[in-house]
């Protein structure tokens, strides 16, 4: 991956790396991608993607509202205003 592509990837990932950390991780990523490239040698023609390792029926839940009784405790994990979580500007 060239420098421009790596920096673009960092922006997409919302990651900021310092100079030495960036160089170290970029070198690691290059090695790992080369390792990933080795799957090209396997002929997988005729095989569909396996999104799950075990076939399972598509189960759905009844479309109804449940009251989560612990919402007050859940909100304790964040800064709140009334019953809203406070977050950054979008």
């Amino acid at each position: 991956m060239d420098d421009a592509a790596f920096d673009r990837m960092l922006r997409i990932c919302r990651l900021r790396l310092s100079g030495s950390e960036r160089d170290r991780i970029k070198a690691d990523i290059d090695k790992v991608i080369t390792y990933f490239d080795t799957i090209e040698s396997v002929d997988c023609d005729g095989y569909s993607p396996a999104y799950q390792p075990v076939e399972m029926p598509a189960r759905t839940r009844e479309d109804r509202t449940d009251v989560f009784r612990e919402s007050d405790r859940l909100l304790k994990n964040s800064k709140t205003y009334r019953f809203y979580m406070v977050g950054p500007k979008i």
Binding site: M1, L10, I25, I29, I39, V42, Y47, S48, P49
Partner: peptide, 28 residues
């Protein structure tokens, strides 16, 4: 951080079939 970068890369539109979808076929 390394795994987030790698995972984001292999899902990129330009290489998704080369890495992610191929890996899923290999799993099958």
């Amino acid at each position: 951080k390394r795994r987030v970068i790698l995972g984001t890369f292999v899902r990129s539109a330009s290489v998704k079939s080369k890495y992610y979808e191929k890996a899923l076929r290999l799993r099958r």
